[in-house]
Design a protein around this nucleic acid. Structure first.
Lengths: 141, 141
DNA sequence: TAATAGTTGACAATAATAGTAAGGTATGCT
DNA sequence: AGCATACCTTACTATTATTGTCAACTATTA
């Protein structure tokens, strides 16, 4: 039941981006060195984040990434889902998989579904702004 | 964020075991064929379940496994934890890992911790008896 | 035009998962 | 006694996903 490092990196990078952006783009190079994440790997992650419309890119010197929306409207569930394809804990919700005819299979199926909803619900209850606020609070100490 | 098949198998097998036990042991062979799980694999899982004291074993002909306790006192969290070593979504709670000195790392850390608690909490809120009751209800239709 | 920085696709190393195989041990039945 | 059952245990293999790395390309600015 491990979360991929992709998800962890993505969230950390988004916090870093928000924290260090003064309206101007932040380059992945900065984020990579601050957060100690491979630059190439980060690029892949931000590609997905851009496709998911949580960030915008600016090319060329002085370029980098910007939040596409207000940090208060970006939920962790979004970020995590974008970089980690299946958030659902189990593969069998795909089609009318045979095997799901057995009674007890369906019973456990409902459990995994409920679990997925809890996970998603929890992550969606936290916004990027929440994390950034906390991070700023911690810095002051 | 996928749950291992181990966890899924273990829960299904435990439901099957409870459903098909009339006080006498149920052999893994039966469970394996009913649930369509490899016998050898099931044996490994039940080894862990036995070590975790949720089942008892009876050797020899007519032997098999029995619940070690009432099904109402066996929580899914227990079963899942026993067969899937780390339930925590993230590896970094181990030691005083360097890197956790950065402010935002700790912020996200709290998120993963909270997530782990939700997962565990949800799974612990469901007992084997709950699932069995539902499975019996579904059969009647 | 040179440097920056995002864009993209292919590839490789590593680790975890999932499953197989095989032999051993305890027990009950005939 | 001895055979069959079924648990017990360890070792091994294959597959897959993750986690990266590499390299070439495109857009933009100074």
């Amino acid at each position: 039941m491990r979360l991929s490092t992709r998800a962890q990196y993505a969230v950390r990078a988004m916090v870093d981006l928000t924290l260090n952006s003064n309206g101007s783009p932040v380059s992945l190079r900065e984020i990579a060195s601050r957060e100690n994440i491979s630059l190439n790997y980060l690029e892949q992650l931000f590609h997905r984040l851009k496709k998911g419309a949580v960030v915008l890119s600016v090319r060329g010197p002085g370029g980098g990434y910007l939040l596409a929306r207000d940090s208060a409207s970006i939920r962790l569930g979004e970020i995590v889902t974008l970089v980690e394809e299946p958030l659902a804990p189990v593969a069998c919700m795909d089609e009318g998989k045979k095997g799901c005819t057995r009674g007890d299979v369906c019973v456990t199926h409902m459990v995994w579904q409920g679990l997925g909803e809890r996970i998603r619900g929890f992550l969606d209850s936290i916004t990027l702004a929440d994390l950034v606020r906390e991070a700023r609070g911690e810095e002051k100490r």
